[in-house]
Simulated assay, not measured.
Amino acid sequence: MAGAQAALGLRRGGWEGRISLLGDEPHRPYDRPPLSKNVLLGKADATTFEIDWEHLGVELLTGRRALALAPGVLHTDGGELPYEGLVIATGAEPRPLPGAPGARLLRTVDDALALRERLRPGVRLVLAGAGWIGAETATVARQLGCEVTVVEAGPAPLTGALPEPLGAVMAGWYAAAGVGLRCGAGVLAAEPGAVVLTDGTRLPADEVLVGIGARPATGWLSGSGVELDAAGAILVDERLRTGAPGVWAAGDCVSYPSARSGVRLAVQHWDHALQSGTAAAASMLGADAPYDPVPYFWSEQFGRMVQYAGRHAEADELIHRGSPEEPSWTVLWLRQGALVAALSVDRPRDLNQARRLIDRGAVLDRALAADPAVQLKAAAA
Protein backbone atom coordinates (compact mmCIF):
# COMPACT_ATOMS: atom_id res chain seq x y z
CA MET A 1 0.00 0.00 0.00
CA ALA A 2 2.68 2.53 0.99
CA GLY A 3 4.83 1.91 -2.07
CA ALA A 4 1.86 1.97 -4.44
CA GLN A 5 0.61 5.24 -2.95
CA ALA A 6 4.05 6.80 -3.26
CA ALA A 7 4.22 5.89 -6.96
CA LEU A 8 0.71 7.23 -7.56
CA GLY A 9 1.50 10.39 -5.63
CA LEU A 10 4.59 11.09 -7.71
CA ARG A 11 2.72 10.77 -10.99
CA ARG A 12 -0.27 12.77 -9.80
CA GLY A 13 2.09 15.37 -8.39
CA GLY A 14 3.65 15.99 -11.77
CA TRP A 15 6.79 13.85 -11.76
CA GLU A 16 7.41 12.93 -15.41
CA GLY A 17 10.56 10.86 -15.03
CA ARG A 18 10.96 7.13 -14.66
CA ILE A 19 9.27 5.41 -11.71
CA SER A 20 10.00 1.82 -10.74
CA LEU A 21 7.97 0.01 -8.10
CA LEU A 22 9.90 -2.94 -6.68
CA GLY A 23 8.44 -5.73 -4.55
CA ASP A 24 9.73 -9.11 -3.45
CA GLU A 25 6.37 -10.86 -3.90
CA PRO A 26 5.46 -12.15 -7.38
CA HIS A 27 2.11 -10.33 -7.30
CA ARG A 28 1.09 -6.88 -8.44
CA PRO A 29 0.39 -4.48 -5.55
CA TYR A 30 -2.60 -5.63 -3.50
CA ASP A 31 -4.62 -4.84 -0.39
CA ARG A 32 -3.90 -6.77 2.83
CA PRO A 33 -6.92 -6.23 5.15
CA PRO A 34 -9.22 -8.59 3.17
CA LEU A 35 -6.73 -11.45 3.57
CA SER A 36 -8.03 -12.33 7.05
CA LYS A 37 -11.63 -11.79 5.96
CA ASN A 38 -12.94 -12.34 2.40
CA VAL A 39 -9.93 -14.27 1.13
CA LEU A 40 -10.03 -16.76 4.03
CA LEU A 41 -13.79 -17.05 3.61
CA GLY A 42 -13.39 -17.89 -0.08
CA LYS A 43 -15.23 -14.80 -1.26
CA ALA A 44 -12.12 -13.56 -3.10
CA ASP A 45 -8.92 -15.08 -4.42
CA ALA A 46 -7.02 -11.83 -4.91
CA THR A 47 -7.15 -8.23 -3.72
CA THR A 48 -5.08 -6.59 -6.46
CA PHE A 49 -5.42 -2.81 -6.71
CA GLU A 50 -7.33 -1.74 -9.80
CA ILE A 51 -4.61 0.60 -11.01
CA ASP A 52 -3.45 0.89 -14.62
CA TRP A 53 0.26 0.97 -13.92
CA GLU A 54 1.15 0.79 -17.61
CA HIS A 55 -0.98 3.84 -18.41
CA LEU A 56 0.71 5.70 -15.56
CA GLY A 57 4.12 4.74 -16.85
CA VAL A 58 5.09 2.97 -13.62
CA GLU A 59 7.42 0.03 -14.11
CA LEU A 60 6.45 -2.89 -11.87
CA LEU A 61 9.37 -5.06 -10.81
CA THR A 62 7.67 -7.94 -9.01
CA GLY A 63 9.58 -10.79 -7.47
CA ARG A 64 12.62 -8.56 -6.89
CA ARG A 65 14.15 -8.38 -3.43
CA ALA A 66 16.14 -5.43 -2.12
CA LEU A 67 19.49 -6.63 -0.77
CA ALA A 68 21.50 -3.54 0.12
CA LEU A 69 21.60 0.21 -0.29
CA ALA A 70 24.47 2.45 -1.34
CA PRO A 71 24.39 6.15 -2.25
CA GLY A 72 22.40 6.40 -5.49
CA VAL A 73 22.16 2.64 -6.01
CA LEU A 74 19.71 0.01 -4.79
CA HIS A 75 21.17 -3.48 -4.93
CA THR A 76 18.62 -6.21 -5.66
CA ASP A 77 18.67 -9.90 -6.42
CA GLY A 78 17.98 -8.91 -10.03
CA GLY A 79 20.81 -6.41 -10.36
CA GLU A 80 21.53 -2.77 -9.50
CA LEU A 81 18.95 0.01 -9.77
CA PRO A 82 20.29 3.56 -9.80
CA TYR A 83 18.01 6.20 -8.29
CA GLU A 84 17.65 9.95 -7.88
CA GLY A 85 15.04 9.57 -5.18
CA LEU A 86 14.07 6.43 -3.25
CA VAL A 87 11.12 5.57 -1.02
CA ILE A 88 11.68 2.58 1.25
CA ALA A 89 8.34 0.91 1.93
CA THR A 90 9.36 -2.65 2.76
CA GLY A 91 6.74 -2.89 5.49
CA ALA A 92 6.85 -5.40 8.32
CA GLU A 93 7.21 -9.14 8.60
CA PRO A 94 5.31 -11.31 11.10
CA ARG A 95 7.19 -12.46 14.17
CA PRO A 96 7.69 -16.23 14.17
CA LEU A 97 7.23 -18.33 17.29
CA PRO A 98 10.57 -19.87 18.29
CA GLY A 99 8.98 -23.06 19.60
CA ALA A 100 6.82 -23.60 16.53
CA PRO A 101 9.01 -23.18 13.44
CA GLY A 102 6.44 -24.95 11.23
CA ALA A 103 3.46 -22.85 12.31
CA ARG A 104 1.61 -20.77 9.74
CA LEU A 105 1.83 -16.99 9.40
CA LEU A 106 -0.73 -14.68 7.82
CA ARG A 107 0.81 -11.72 6.02
CA THR A 108 0.67 -12.35 2.27
CA VAL A 109 -2.04 -13.44 -0.16
CA ASP A 110 -0.18 -16.73 -0.59
CA ASP A 111 -0.31 -17.23 3.20
CA ALA A 112 -4.07 -16.62 3.15
CA LEU A 113 -4.73 -18.98 0.25
CA ALA A 114 -2.65 -21.74 1.84
CA LEU A 115 -4.43 -21.38 5.18
CA ARG A 116 -7.83 -21.30 3.47
CA GLU A 117 -7.19 -24.76 2.02
CA ARG A 118 -6.79 -26.11 5.55
CA LEU A 119 -9.79 -24.47 7.24
CA ARG A 120 -12.40 -27.20 6.96
CA PRO A 121 -15.23 -28.20 9.32
CA GLY A 122 -13.84 -30.00 12.35
CA VAL A 123 -10.24 -28.85 11.88
CA ARG A 124 -8.69 -27.98 15.24
CA LEU A 125 -7.01 -24.59 14.87
CA VAL A 126 -4.85 -23.05 17.58
CA LEU A 127 -4.02 -19.37 17.23
CA ALA A 128 -1.07 -17.96 19.15
CA GLY A 129 -1.91 -14.37 20.01
CA ALA A 130 -5.25 -12.70 20.81
CA GLY A 131 -4.51 -9.56 18.84
CA TRP A 132 -6.32 -8.15 15.82
CA ILE A 133 -5.20 -10.91 13.44
CA GLY A 134 -6.00 -13.59 15.99
CA ALA A 135 -9.54 -12.30 16.55
CA GLU A 136 -10.26 -11.83 12.84
CA THR A 137 -8.95 -15.27 11.89
CA ALA A 138 -10.79 -16.93 14.77
CA THR A 139 -14.00 -15.27 13.55
CA VAL A 140 -13.60 -16.66 10.03
CA ALA A 141 -12.45 -20.10 11.16
CA ARG A 142 -15.56 -20.51 13.32
CA GLN A 143 -17.74 -19.49 10.38
CA LEU A 144 -16.05 -22.27 8.40
CA GLY A 145 -16.81 -24.84 11.09
CA CYS A 146 -13.37 -25.16 12.67
CA GLU A 147 -12.74 -25.86 16.34
CA VAL A 148 -10.77 -22.79 17.44
CA THR A 149 -8.67 -22.03 20.49
CA VAL A 150 -6.81 -18.75 20.92
CA VAL A 151 -3.82 -18.68 23.26
CA GLU A 152 -2.66 -15.35 24.68
CA ALA A 153 0.37 -14.87 26.91
CA GLY A 154 -1.07 -11.66 28.36
CA PRO A 155 -3.92 -11.38 30.85
CA ALA A 156 -6.56 -10.45 28.24
CA PRO A 157 -7.05 -10.02 24.50
CA LEU A 158 -5.25 -7.10 22.88
CA THR A 159 -2.70 -6.79 25.66
CA GLY A 160 -0.47 -3.86 24.80
CA ALA A 161 -2.95 -2.32 22.39
CA LEU A 162 -5.72 -1.56 24.90
CA PRO A 163 -6.02 -1.30 28.70
CA GLU A 164 -6.67 -4.68 30.30
CA PRO A 165 -10.27 -3.92 31.41
CA LEU A 166 -11.30 -3.27 27.79
CA GLY A 167 -9.53 -6.39 26.60
CA ALA A 168 -11.38 -8.34 29.30
CA VAL A 169 -14.69 -7.09 27.89
CA MET A 170 -13.72 -8.48 24.50
CA ALA A 171 -12.89 -11.86 26.04
CA GLY A 172 -16.63 -12.45 26.28
CA TRP A 173 -16.92 -12.16 22.51
CA TYR A 174 -14.74 -15.26 22.08
CA ALA A 175 -16.94 -17.38 24.32
CA ALA A 176 -20.14 -16.19 22.62
CA ALA A 177 -18.67 -17.21 19.25
CA GLY A 178 -17.69 -20.66 20.50
CA VAL A 179 -13.98 -19.87 20.47
CA GLY A 180 -11.80 -21.13 23.29
CA LEU A 181 -9.60 -18.45 24.87
CA ARG A 182 -6.70 -19.20 27.19
CA CYS A 183 -4.94 -16.17 28.64
CA GLY A 184 -1.86 -16.06 30.83
CA ALA A 185 -0.02 -18.79 28.94
CA GLY A 186 1.88 -18.75 25.66
CA VAL A 187 2.69 -21.45 23.14
CA LEU A 188 5.95 -23.09 24.16
CA ALA A 189 6.23 -25.65 21.37
CA ALA A 190 4.32 -27.30 18.55
CA GLU A 191 4.42 -31.02 17.92
CA PRO A 192 2.49 -33.30 15.56
CA GLY A 193 -1.18 -32.91 16.41
CA ALA A 194 -0.74 -30.63 19.42
CA VAL A 195 0.77 -27.53 20.94
CA VAL A 196 2.36 -27.32 24.38
CA LEU A 197 1.71 -24.21 26.45
CA THR A 198 4.08 -22.53 28.88
CA ASP A 199 1.96 -23.80 31.81
CA GLY A 200 2.38 -27.40 30.64
CA THR A 201 -1.05 -27.75 29.04
CA ARG A 202 -1.16 -29.76 25.80
CA LEU A 203 -3.85 -28.65 23.30
CA PRO A 204 -4.84 -30.76 20.29
CA ALA A 205 -4.09 -28.89 17.05
CA ASP A 206 -4.32 -29.80 13.40
CA GLU A 207 -3.16 -26.32 12.39
CA VAL A 208 -1.29 -23.59 14.25
CA LEU A 209 -1.31 -19.94 13.23
CA VAL A 210 0.98 -17.37 14.83
CA GLY A 211 -0.22 -13.79 15.25
CA ILE A 212 2.08 -12.24 17.85
CA GLY A 213 2.95 -9.03 16.05
CA ALA A 214 5.32 -7.91 13.33
CA ARG A 215 8.72 -6.30 13.05
CA PRO A 216 10.00 -3.84 10.44
CA ALA A 217 11.43 -5.56 7.36
CA THR A 218 14.65 -3.55 7.43
CA GLY A 219 17.44 -6.05 8.05
CA TRP A 220 18.70 -5.50 4.51
CA LEU A 221 19.61 -1.89 5.40
CA SER A 222 22.52 -2.86 7.63
CA GLY A 223 25.52 -0.70 6.82
CA SER A 224 23.53 1.55 4.48
CA GLY A 225 23.68 4.74 6.53
CA VAL A 226 19.91 4.66 7.03
CA GLU A 227 19.43 4.91 10.80
CA LEU A 228 17.18 2.41 12.59
CA ASP A 229 15.75 2.45 16.09
CA ALA A 230 16.11 -0.41 18.58
CA ALA A 231 13.09 -2.18 17.11
CA GLY A 232 14.45 -1.94 13.57
CA ALA A 233 12.16 0.87 12.37
CA ILE A 234 13.62 3.49 10.04
CA LEU A 235 14.08 6.85 11.75
CA VAL A 236 12.60 9.59 9.58
CA ASP A 237 11.96 13.28 10.18
CA GLU A 238 8.61 15.06 10.03
CA ARG A 239 8.82 15.04 6.21
CA LEU A 240 9.50 11.27 6.14
CA ARG A 241 13.12 11.83 5.09
CA THR A 242 15.80 9.45 6.30
CA GLY A 243 19.31 10.60 7.16
CA ALA A 244 20.57 9.29 3.80
CA PRO A 245 20.50 11.80 0.92
CA GLY A 246 17.61 11.28 -1.49
CA VAL A 247 15.98 8.56 0.61
CA TRP A 248 12.50 8.68 2.15
CA ALA A 249 10.55 5.94 3.94
CA ALA A 250 6.86 5.18 4.50
CA GLY A 251 4.52 2.59 5.95
CA ASP A 252 5.02 -0.11 8.54
CA CYS A 253 8.81 0.16 8.52
CA VAL A 254 9.12 3.76 9.80
CA SER A 255 9.27 5.63 13.09
CA TYR A 256 8.22 9.26 12.69
CA PRO A 257 8.10 12.19 15.14
CA SER A 258 4.56 13.17 16.13
CA ALA A 259 4.18 16.69 17.47
CA ARG A 260 0.60 15.79 18.34
CA SER A 261 1.71 12.98 20.65
CA GLY A 262 5.08 14.35 21.70
CA VAL A 263 6.82 11.07 20.91
CA ARG A 264 7.97 9.03 17.93
CA LEU A 265 5.35 6.67 16.55
CA ALA A 266 5.72 3.39 14.68
CA VAL A 267 2.30 2.48 13.27
CA GLN A 268 1.58 -0.78 11.46
CA HIS A 269 -1.87 -0.27 10.03
CA TRP A 270 -3.49 0.24 6.63
CA ASP A 271 -4.42 3.89 7.07
CA HIS A 272 -0.86 4.85 7.97
CA ALA A 273 0.50 3.04 4.91
CA LEU A 274 -2.05 4.85 2.74
CA GLN A 275 -1.32 8.31 4.12
CA SER A 276 2.43 8.04 4.58
CA GLY A 277 2.98 6.73 1.04
CA THR A 278 1.17 9.76 -0.35
CA ALA A 279 3.00 12.09 2.04
CA ALA A 280 6.42 10.69 1.09
CA ALA A 281 5.71 11.41 -2.57
CA ALA A 282 4.63 14.96 -1.76
CA SER A 283 7.79 15.47 0.29
CA MET A 284 9.94 14.22 -2.59
CA LEU A 285 8.26 16.80 -4.81
CA GLY A 286 9.04 19.63 -2.40
CA ALA A 287 5.97 19.87 -0.17
CA ASP A 288 6.76 21.26 3.28
CA ALA A 289 3.82 19.87 5.30
CA PRO A 290 4.78 17.74 8.31
CA TYR A 291 3.39 14.21 8.47
CA ASP A 292 1.36 13.85 11.67
CA PRO A 293 -2.11 12.33 11.08
CA VAL A 294 -4.42 10.99 13.75
CA PRO A 295 -3.57 7.26 13.89
CA TYR A 296 -6.54 5.10 12.92
CA PHE A 297 -7.33 1.45 12.44
CA TRP A 298 -10.28 -0.92 12.39
CA SER A 299 -11.01 -4.60 12.87
CA GLU A 300 -14.01 -6.76 11.98
CA GLN A 301 -14.36 -9.49 14.56
CA PHE A 302 -17.14 -11.66 15.99
CA GLY A 303 -19.79 -9.74 14.06
CA ARG A 304 -18.60 -6.35 15.31
CA MET A 305 -16.83 -3.39 13.75
CA VAL A 306 -14.14 -2.18 16.14
CA GLN A 307 -12.49 1.17 15.36
CA TYR A 308 -9.79 3.11 17.14
CA ALA A 309 -8.34 6.58 16.58
CA GLY A 310 -5.65 8.60 18.32
CA ARG A 311 -3.32 7.52 21.08
CA HIS A 312 -4.45 6.88 24.65
CA ALA A 313 -1.05 6.34 26.28
CA GLU A 314 -0.79 9.88 27.68
CA ALA A 315 -4.48 10.24 28.61
CA ASP A 316 -5.48 11.17 32.16
CA GLU A 317 -9.24 10.58 31.98
CA LEU A 318 -11.57 7.90 30.60
CA ILE A 319 -15.20 8.44 29.58
CA HIS A 320 -17.68 5.72 28.59
CA ARG A 321 -20.37 6.47 26.00
CA GLY A 322 -22.72 3.63 26.65
CA SER A 323 -21.93 0.40 28.44
CA PRO A 324 -19.66 -2.35 27.08
CA GLU A 325 -22.50 -4.70 28.03
CA GLU A 326 -24.60 -3.13 25.26
CA PRO A 327 -24.34 -4.05 21.55
CA SER A 328 -22.63 -0.75 20.66
CA TRP A 329 -20.51 1.59 22.76
CA THR A 330 -17.60 4.02 22.70
CA VAL A 331 -14.75 4.83 25.06
CA LEU A 332 -13.08 8.26 25.02
CA TRP A 333 -9.70 9.21 26.42
CA LEU A 334 -8.98 12.81 27.43
CA ARG A 335 -5.80 14.65 28.34
CA GLN A 336 -6.38 17.86 30.27
CA GLY A 337 -9.93 17.83 28.94
CA ALA A 338 -9.00 17.44 25.28
CA LEU A 339 -9.93 14.33 23.32
CA VAL A 340 -6.83 12.29 22.42
CA ALA A 341 -8.21 8.83 21.58
CA ALA A 342 -11.43 6.92 21.01
CA LEU A 343 -12.46 3.28 20.68
CA SER A 344 -15.87 2.46 19.23
CA VAL A 345 -17.75 -0.79 18.78
CA ASP A 346 -20.43 -0.54 16.09
CA ARG A 347 -20.66 3.25 16.47
CA PRO A 348 -18.95 4.50 13.29
CA ARG A 349 -20.42 8.00 13.59
CA ASP A 350 -18.75 8.41 16.98
CA LEU A 351 -15.41 7.36 15.56
CA ASN A 352 -15.62 9.57 12.47
CA GLN A 353 -16.43 12.60 14.59
CA ALA A 354 -13.76 11.66 17.15
CA ARG A 355 -11.04 11.63 14.48
CA ARG A 356 -11.86 15.21 13.54
CA LEU A 357 -12.07 16.33 17.17
CA ILE A 358 -8.72 14.70 18.01
CA ASP A 359 -7.16 16.37 14.98
CA ARG A 360 -8.08 19.83 16.24
CA GLY A 361 -7.44 19.09 19.91
CA ALA A 362 -11.04 19.76 20.92
CA VAL A 363 -11.91 20.07 24.61
CA LEU A 364 -15.09 18.15 25.51
CA ASP A 365 -18.00 18.80 27.82
CA ARG A 366 -17.76 15.61 29.87
CA ALA A 367 -21.47 15.26 30.58
CA LEU A 368 -22.43 15.62 26.93
CA ALA A 369 -19.60 13.35 25.79
CA ALA A 370 -20.83 10.60 28.13
CA ASP A 371 -24.35 10.68 26.70
CA PRO A 372 -24.56 8.28 23.72
CA ALA A 373 -27.76 10.00 22.57
CA VAL A 374 -25.83 13.23 21.93
CA GLN A 375 -23.69 13.50 18.82
CA LEU A 376 -20.06 13.57 19.90
CA LYS A 377 -19.32 16.72 17.93
CA ALA A 378 -21.95 18.53 20.02
CA ALA A 379 -19.81 17.87 23.12
CA ALA A 380 -16.94 19.95 21.78
CA ALA A 381 -16.46 23.23 23.60
Rank of each mutant, 00 (worst) to 15 (best):
M1P: 05
A2Y: 04
A4H: 05
A6L: 01
L8A: 07
G9I: 03
L10A: 03
W15G: 04
W15V: 04
I19L: 10
G23A: 12
P29I: 07
P29K: 08
D45C: 02
H55S: 15
L56C: 14
V58P: 08
L61Y: 02
G63K: 13
A68I: 05
A70E: 15
G72K: 05
G78D: 01
E80A: 11
Y83L: 06
L86F: 00
I88W: 00
T90M: 03
A92E: 07
P101C: 13
L105C: 08
E117Q: 14
I133S: 04
E152T: 07
A153G: 15
A153K: 12
G154C: 10
P155M: 05
P157K: 02
L162V: 13
E164N: 07
A168V: 08
V169R: 07
W173G: 03
Y174W: 12
A177I: 05
G180R: 06
L181S: 07
L181D: 05
G186F: 10
G193Y: 13
V195R: 04
G200A: 08
D206N: 11
P216T: 08
G219W: 06
V226Y: 11
L228D: 09
A230Q: 12
I234D: 02
Y256V: 04
S258P: 03
A259P: 06
V263S: 09
R264C: 11
H272T: 03
Q275N: 12
S276M: 08
S276E: 02
T278F: 06
T278P: 01
T278C: 09
A280M: 10
M284V: 15
A287E: 14
D288S: 13
V294G: 01
P295D: 02
F297C: 05
F297S: 05
E300L: 09
F302R: 04
R304H: 15
Y308K: 01
A313W: 02
D316K: 00
V340P: 00
D346R: 09
D346F: 01
R349Y: 01
A354Y: 02
I358M: 01
D359Q: 10
Q375K: 07
